[in-house]
């Protein structure tokens, strides 16, 4: 202390060293959090009623936003696809192009991002408020695991809801693409749906499904973790919510890249 060499040279270095240390520490804590969550997922009893409630919140509650974004994504794909394909004179492939983009890429990613924004942030905020008002501590005192009551239902609900929401997104998107390509730009329904069926197979559907399951787990993991370890006060909760949305969105895109390279 007080030594100028210390203050100007060593302290900044110390601070610099603290950043990777705390990052690694945070990663470790996230890992432990996931481990405990998985433990309580498989250790009965399961709080089935709470799982239903979270499916209602994450799944049913996100349907409107998924239908809206899905329709418009499909419609944009219809437009863009048509103009791109018309340059090379193969607008007959519009159906397969729209379906392929949606099933393999846009469906899982967009649906996951929408769920993060709508439901993930709310999960973080709710857990964060429960943390700062000591409701999580109260569960501990009652000898009940907060993982079992609060985290596991969210994880299971996300694992079930996100793939289903993705499927809804895909179907609505394909119809949206048809609305533009077929009704507006004159690709016949036979060509549109025929090309779609011909050039797609089960692996496309499954790849999208695997991705969306991974994303569902990722959203629940990140958003629950951030809420569970929220800081103090309203500021702590708002910070946690922001971090949860940002981290989860970034991880979805990173994860998407690796899943794509592994799955194809």
């Amino acid at each position: 202390m007080g030594n100028p060499a210390d203050r100007w040279l060593l302290d900044p270095l110390r601070e610099l060293g603290r950043i990777p240390l705390s990052a690694v520490g945070g990663l470790g804590r996230m890992g432990i959090f996931l481990g405990r969550t998985l433990f309580y997922t498989f250790a009965p009893p399961l709080k089935f009623f709470r799982v239903l409630k979270q499916i209602q919140f994450i799944g049913f509650g996100s349907m409107l936003v998924i239908v809206l974004t899905g329709a418009f994504t499909g419609m944009v794909l219809g437009f863009q696809g048509f103009y791109t394909l018309s340059r090379v004179g193969s607008t007959a492939f519009l159906g397969s192009m729209v379906a392929l983009s949606l099933l393999r890429e846009l469906g899982p990613v967009m649906a996951a991002l929408m769920v993060t924004g709508r439901a993930g942030s709310a999960v973080t905020a709710e857990l964060g408020i429960m943390r700062i008002t000591e409701q999580i501590d109260e569960l501990e005192i009652l000898g009940l695991s907060p993982y079992r009551y609060l985290v596991v239902p969210n994880l299971l609900a996300a694992l079930i809801s996100v793939p289903l929401l993705t499927a809804i997104f895909d179907v609505v998107g394909i119809l949206g693409g048809y609305l533009i390509g077929g009704k507006l730009l004159g690709v016949t329904s036979g060509t549109y749906f025929g090309a779609m069926t011909d050039y797609m197979d089960m692996s496309d559907v499954l790849n999208g499904l695997y991705k969306s399951i991974c994303f569902g787990g990722l959203i629940a993991w990140v958003c629950c973790y951030k809420g569970f370890y929220a800081g103090y006060g309203a500021e702590g909760v708002s910070k946690a919510t922001t971090q949860a949305v940002v981290l989860s969105s970034v991880l979805i895109l990173i994860c998407d890249y690796f899943l794509t390279s592994v799955l194809f």
Binding site: T133, E134, Q135, D137, E138, E140, I141, L142, G143
Partner: peptide, 19 residues
């Protein structure tokens, strides 16, 4: 630990009622 917790009661500062 669970057995011990079952003998515990804790009244939190703000009540910590499940809202």
């Amino acid at each position: 630990l669970v057995a011990l917790r079952n003998r515990f009661g804790f009244l939190f500062q703000n009540g910590a009622l499940f809202d």
